[in-house]
Write a protein that binds this DNA or RNA. Structure first.
Length: 488
RNA sequence: GGUCUGAUGGCCGAGCGGUUAGGCAGAGGUCUGCAAAACCUCGUACAGCGGUUCGAUUCCGCUUCAGACCUCCA
């Protein structure tokens, strides 16, 4: 648990050493999905980024409480006062209960995150299950004079807040700029200023999702849930708050304002944001209509996809880029990731076949040390993976008899490689579950026949066997000491 | 319009004031009955123009281009 771990803090825009408030405990809060649609690649990036953080912190010896919310209270479609929220809208279109929608898409989200080997968070609170906490927090903000009532709704008074505390500290905005560059406001009659945002919204008659409150039957504003639920489960101060970069403003700036307005201080000490996945240079997003869902990636059922991609390929593809860089989707890039991952996994399987010697010509200790150095530098997974590939070469060379390794070092290597690959990067060998055990006896038989043919220099027969097996996805490799095979 | 970020070889993608990123694709070689796999070798990329410097892809300025946020958004 050396605390030389550095992370990029969005608020200071610089690399900072990570020092937890109460080591070895770490409190981590990440904004989860709004469950009104199928998860797409963007959701995967965010989930995988913070899954990596979660795993790496645990690997580093921390006890992490990881909270990731499910937003099942519909947000308004836009900034206007009137309008339908997304979940209600979807419910109306599909003629079901709003809770049916959020329940369905929550399950879908879990299903795909499980496939991507994204660990479930420690706590996954629902916004709809914390209406009381949100109402209580709104009351405090009202008491402190940073909010006002308007026709049954409660709005955050940005101007009043800004007089005491700077607003927009995360995004680096100031309210003068925001006012001067303000967009035209239409019909926002209840708000004093277009910068103000809703803490509680009075529900219009057709609005289905509603709860009673001291002010009206309505629903909480879209920034409230994170402030209320993070405080409930992680306390008024906690370590890391994460989310997608597109949430920096207004969502996280509003969240900061709410927390400061209620408690007098900020809640999170480090803010981390993952960058977007782009598609032909443009952000991939539902609203832009260029999002490919995870299901489509897994089935290949999308006009832009040349083939299906495995969940691990997607995970590896995302891990091969730094989380703060945009990552451009293309079939070529995914296919490259697929090949690279196969090579990595193959090497992991090869380790046990390495012959041992009485001395080592390789320094196994550098494997983990180099990996940590990369990860300590703001979770630089691409460098960490590059280091693993260096060892792929070493492993394959050792396997061929170039260089030596002791039995002890071999075991260290095997353990370390497995821990880093599987536990930290979360990359699991998909081929292990592809029914190898079932075909193994058959393969033994087939290869014996082929061996006979080869001994008789009956190349035609041996090649037919090889080609037929290749056709059904089993690759044969003739080596010095026999023939190996694997399912592709 | 405001705020901010980026531009790296065929593709994806790291990085840094002078030294090999890595993966995929490609070329040559070793091995092999032939393959496949593996291993070895290779390509001299850092948008353009200035500036700082002994030296810049890396620092500064300008230009061009692209993107994100300012509306729900991972």
């Amino acid at each position: 648990m050396e605390s030389k771990f550095k992370i990029h803090n969005t608020q200071t825009r610089s690399l900072e050493e990570f020092v937890p408030l109460d080591p070895p405990r770490v409190g981590l809060y990440v904004c989860g999905p709004t469950v009104y649609g199928d998860p797409h690649l963007g959701h995967a990036r965010s989930a995988i980024t913070f899954d990596l953080l979660f795993r790496y912190l645990q690997y580093s010896g921390y006890k992490v409480r990881y909270v990731r919310n499910i937003t099942d209270v519909g947000h308004l479609e836009n900034d206007a006062d009137e309008g339908e929220d997304k979940i209600s809208k979807k419910a109306r279109i599909e003629q079901v209960e709003p809770m049916e929608i959020s329940g369905y898409y929550t399950r879908r989200y879990h299903q795909f995150m499980d496939r991507l080997n994204v660990l479930r968070p420690s706590i996954e609170p629902l916004a709809s299950g914390h209406i009381i906490e949100q109402i209580e927090m709104i009351k405090v903000i009202l008491d402190h004079g940073y909010a006002y009532l308007g026709n049954g709704s409660v709005y955050f008074d940005v101007q009043a807040y800004n007089n005491d505390h700077p607003y927009g500290v995360l995004s680096g905005r100031n309210i003068e700029d925001m006012i001067s560059s303000g967009r035209t406001l239409d019909g926002q009659s209840d708000k004093r200023s277009p910068l103000d945002f809703a803490l509680w919204k009075k529900a219009s008659p057709e609005h289905i999702m509603r709860w009673p409150s001291p002010w009206s039957d309505g629903f909480p504003g879209w920034h409230m849930e994170c402030s209320a639920m993070s405080a409930k489960y992680l306390g008024q101060r906690f370590d890391i708050h994460g989310g997608g970069m597109d949430l920096v403003f207004p969502h996280h700036d509003c969240e900061i304002a709410q927390s400061v307005a209620a408690t007098g201080h900020q809640s999170a000490r480090y803010w981390m944001h993952n960058n977007m996945i782009t598609m032909e240079g443009r952000k991939m997003g539902k609203s832009l209509g260029n999002a490919i869902s995870l299901e489509q990636f897994l089935t290949g059922d999308h006009p832009l996809l040349q083939q299906a991609y495995s969940a691990m390929t997607i995970r590896f593809f995302i891990l091969q880029a730094h989380y703060r860089s945009t990552l451009d989707f293309s079939n070529e890039a995914l296919q490259a990731a697929q090949k690279g991952l196969e090579r990595l996994m193959e090497a992991a399987r090869t380790i046990e076949k390495i012959p041992v010697s009485d001395a080592s010509t390789v320094d196994v200790a550098t494997l983990e040390a180099d990996f940590r150095r990369a990860m300590d530098d703001d979770l630089n997974s691409p460098i960490a993976i590059a280091g693993l590939f260096d060892w792929v070469r070493v492993i394959n060379s050792l396997r061929q008899g170039d260089g030596k390794i002791t039995a002890q070092d071999k075991e260290l290597l095997q353990n370390a490689f497995h821990v880093l690959l599987t536990d930290v990067l979360g990359l699991v060998d998909e081929s292990e579950t592809s029914g190898k055990e079932i075909v193994a006896p058959l393969m033994e038989m087939v290869l014996e026949v082929r061996k006979k043919a080869r001994e008789n220099k009956d190349w035609a027969t041996s090649d037919i066997i090889r080609d037929r097996l290749a056709a059904v996805g089993i690759q044969i490799k003739d080596g010095k000491d026999g023939t190996e095979w694997e399912i592709k």
